[in-house]
Design a binder for these strands. Structure first.
Lengths: 194, 194
DNA sequence: GCTATTCATTAACAAATGATAAAAAGCAAT
DNA sequence: ATTGCTTTTTATCATTTGTTAATGAATAGC
């Protein structure tokens, strides 16, 4: 097995361990892609029929709000899975942008092929459900943070979860993710040094 | 077909129309329950193996944050579907509270039976995926609201979506849902009268 | 190395939101 | 109707966060 497949296996087993046999079924439909920093991985309102594993680098998802500003929804670090196809598309049309925040190495699967594996293999179905659960748990945690924590507390939590990002990603994007202005972020960074 | 089944059919077709034949498969596993205002529908950390349709009344989901406060996550109005089992439980253990905000009429399905229908019937699978998508879309919309709108704008959006709620639900809960204090909510209500 | 450009910080002030406390309004039980 | 209890509003003041503008730091391209 090549090194990249190995990494996919690691990601899967970290979320929901599956048998070697089940993994081989997944491996058979894996493809690999690379993106340069700034490249669009998935374009909003365009066709998309893939599932994604982030093997190396950082990817972000975002939307444009009614005032025309980018709102960062999520960061996907190395060794993680992008939001599953079933919830980020409707009729294969994406309703989010996904963009490479750094150079990216990615593994993909055809979403229909994966859906077929899910149907026939209960282990893989279990894995897919675990991914869905994790997605929602993350969203709820973020929601609770936005609804009930101060900006300073949100930044502290962000630092726990996304240690490296603060040195890699433009602060404007981190601020957007946290729901504050980049000026506020700068102020909080100073306050937290003390 | 009884009136309650009819209502379930309406809910399903509003989200993702399915054939009469597919609906009958669902109807076969429907059960009906009622709750009094204030009753717990699903208890956090307890076993749960059901899917839910809200036929009448309003249900809320919430969590207790680290400061011990209730944080309202969602409201489920009449003719809607509770967050699907797959994403609100792990090994059938719920990680959210669901409570009746008003007297409730509910239809339930055994989640495992429904999963089997999903596996064998692609229409029902399509319906289930549509429910998942809607769930995530709602979450993202809420997230964007919390991250990029003022409290006043969030209240205005809330009023568009949940017209009736402001006269039914304690304002403390609405405030919690909006991520503000009930005092702020009261202030905003006054400001918006002008 | 230099310049242009973007990104991050700082300052000063304005606006929004929170905290506390008290008053008013609504509601339920008698 | 009266009492007691809960919810909502109002007022005052403190704190947080946003806005605008200016400065400083980092970076890419030449």
């Amino acid at each position: 097995m090549n090194k990249l497949s190995e990494k996919v296996k690691e990601i899967i087993n970290q979320i929901h361990p599956i048998s070697e046999n089940s993994f081989i079924q997944i491996e058979n439909i894996l493809k690999f892609e690379t993106y340069k920093k700034g490249d669009t991985v998935i374009q909003k309102n365009r066709n998309n029929n893939k599932e994604y594993f982030v093997l190396n680098g950082v990817c972000k998802s975002y939307l444009i709000n009614s005032e025309g500003d980018e709102v960062i929804i999520s960061f996907f670090l190395e060794k993680s899975i992008l939001s599953p196809h079933s919830i980020r598309t409707s009729n294969n049309i994406s309703y989010l942008y996904f963009q490479a925040s750094t150079d990216l190495e990615i593994a993909t699967m055809n979403a229909s092929s994966f859906e077929n594996l899910m149907i026939t293999n209960s282990e893989i179905r279990g894995f897919a459900n675990a991914v869905l659960q994790n997605e929602l748990i993350l969203k709820i945690e973020k929601e609770i943070g936005l609804a009930s924590l101060s900006a300073k507390e949100r930044l502290m939590k962000f630092r726990e979860r996304y240690k490296i990002l603060e040195n890699i990603i433009p602060h404007t994007e981190i601020a957007s993710y946290l729901g504050i202005t980049n000026i506020s972020l700068s102020r909080l960074r100073r306050d937290l040094i003390k």
